[in-house]
Design a protein around this nucleic acid. Structure first.
Ligand SMILES: [Mn+2]
Ligand SMILES: [Mn+2]
Ligand SMILES: [Zn+2]
Ligand SMILES: [Zn+2]
Lengths: 133, 133
DNA sequence: AGTATTATTGCAAACAGATTGCAATAAGTC
DNA sequence: GACTTATTGCAATCTGTTTGCAATAATACT
């Protein structure tokens, strides 16, 4: 949290109560704009949806959050402090689990097959979680 | 093409000139709704954008096309006759290349690490193509 | 070929998610 | 506490997608 605050202030931007609230909500799990908006407004204080969009866009530019896109569903935002990883998405209950993989197992394979210079990738799994089976 | 025609007629649906045109356009490469709309309208005959949406939705349900989502960009549609595969996307020129990988190299790894029953996955690579380097 | 049936199309309107302009507000500095 | 200016809230706008409905055209049947 203090680290995030520093990133914000280093850019001459302000650490507002709205930004604090959104950061708190994001601690839980990756969430859509709508979910974040709903969560911050469940409390007494009101926050405009436009503000949620603007803060998330700013966080994205500062590298504080990542945007994750699961197939055709709405994009989700998650704190980027946990580093690069992939996801398992339960198609029944919507649970999202992080997973870390030894990536060279397929990156090596890709290098063999193409001349593309790979910069990044996204790998997401869809299925049914333990509890929903 | 005749195979697609059969799929459509088997469902009691009609093989219209609009569907034919969209199928032709999709032969080239995976495209966004806007691109498809533009392509079919570049010729003399007009096709409404709503029609493009409706036909693509229908093709999706019939399994004639697949929807591919690259990060936060618009979804693209590609003919599904080539089977499951992944993509390399050039961040400079937008070129999309298909790539096939031996999937068990990472599916096995995932099974070891989680109780999720995996049904499907998406794996897309982003980088710079041969020509753009 | 002509007629009947009904899926499909085009057009206008509605909808949903995201963005923008601007005046009022409040975070940070002195 | 006063000053500067990034940020917020609100209304309006924009962009992508969906829906209702009457007109059209693909198919099946005489
Ligand atoms: Mn995650
Ligand atoms: Mn492809
Ligand atoms: Zn589940
Ligand atoms: Zn390229």
């Amino acid at each position: 949290m203090d680290k995030v605050k520093q990133i914000i202030k280093d850019k001459g931007q302000r650490f507002t109560s709205q930004k604090k609230e959104i950061l708190n909500v994001l601690q839980q799990k990756p969430q859509t704009v709508f979910e974040i908006y709903t969560a911050v407004n469940s409390k007494k204080n009101h926050m405009n949806k436009v503000t949620v969009y603007r803060i998330l866009t700013s966080f994205l530019e500062l590298g504080i959050v990542n945007k994750v896109q699961f197939n055709d569903k709405e994009a989700r935002f998650e704190l980027s402090n946990s580093g690069h990883h992939h996801h398992l998405v339960c198609e029944v209950c919507g649970l999202i689990e992080d997973i870390q993989l030894p990536e060279n197992i397929f990156l090596k394979e890709v290098k063999n097959k193409t001349d593309f210079k790979i910069k990044s990738h996204s790998l997401e799994f869809f299925g049914i979680c333990d509890r929903c089976q």
